[in-house]
Amino acid sequence: MSSVSEVNFLFDSTSQLLPFWIAIAKTEHELELAAKARQLAYGRHLPSLGEMLAKPDADDAHPDSAVLLAFSKLDGSCIGTVRVQIANQQQLRLEESYVLPKALSTGRVAEVSRLAIPARSNGLTLRLMLIKAAYWYIRAKLVDRCFLCVRYPVDRQYRRFELDDVLQPNEFVEMKHIGMIPHRILWFDVFHIEARWLLSANPLHSVYFASSHPDLLQNIQMRTLQLETQQQVRSIG
């Protein structure tokens, strides 16, 4: 059995379909759907921020960014969104408010932001899958480190991810691109977090790495693993 075939076989019994799919926004209309989801989600608790996010911004259409949208299989409606920015042509948005240490900013870096789920009934599964799609997107793009800015008390929801603080634990910075609201800056190593979760027996390891979800960005997890396997075979040969 070839190495690529082994990857396919590994996921045959762990491939899980979802009641939604996640895709990259391609049109102005889809970016408007993302903005509407942000307005509704953030507006529940922070009305002024919700209004600020009601329209697509310049970053949404920038080549460094990918806006991910979740669509319900029931009716095709947009039920969630998240944005990924990879620092190619411009610095990460968070660095408008805080300059990252050189040790963390070298190599390829990304920021995950604008996570929004407008309906209260769409809970943990959708949140986890939006973040999983963002993770495999940046892994496919060979990103070294990824950053997230999270406000209180939402930061408590990210404890399960075992992320590191850029500053001191529980230290917050006012973020210009998020309405000057104080946020913690969290980060993780893209290619090391899998081993970290395995060693700590984090239940997210099964969800993010042992299980395959073909509905995420046209099966990006499988495609990325196949490419990584091919590259490893070539390097050995």
Rank of each mutant, 00 (worst) to 15 (best):
V7G: 05
A58S: 12
R234F: 03
L104S: 02
L92W: 07
D64N: 09
W187M: 03
K132C: 15
A87D: 08
S3V: 13
R127N: 11
L46E: 13
I22Y: 06
T229Y: 02
W21K: 12
Q90S: 12
L53T: 04
R139P: 02
V190Y: 01
G80C: 09
P56Y: 01
F209M: 11
R151W: 02
P118D: 09
F161M: 15
C149S: 14
Q91H: 10
H192W: 05
L68E: 04
L104N: 02
R38E: 12
V173Y: 01
S15G: 04
L69R: 05
G80K: 06
H62T: 09
D164K: 14
K73W: 02
A119T: 07
L124M: 13
I185P: 01
A134H: 03
L167Q: 13
I138T: 07
L163C: 02
E28Q: 14
R151V: 07
S212Y: 00
L31N: 13
Q218G: 07
G179F: 02
F11N: 08
S77V: 11
A58R: 12
Q232F: 04
V190W: 02
T125E: 14
V190T: 06
H183S: 09
L142A: 14
P203G: 03
D75Q: 08
Y42W: 13
L17K: 08
A87G: 06
F191M: 12
R83A: 03
L204Q: 04
L225R: 07
K26C: 11
A54R: 15
K73Q: 11
W136Y: 10
H62N: 14
N8L: 14
I185F: 01
N8T: 05
G76W: 11
W136A: 07
A23L: 10
A210W: 00
P118Q: 07
A34E: 02
P169R: 07
K132R: 15
R184Y: 00
S13H: 07
R139L: 15
W21L: 11
I24C: 11
L227A: 10
R160S: 11
F147Y: 13
W136I: 09
Q157A: 15
M129H: 12
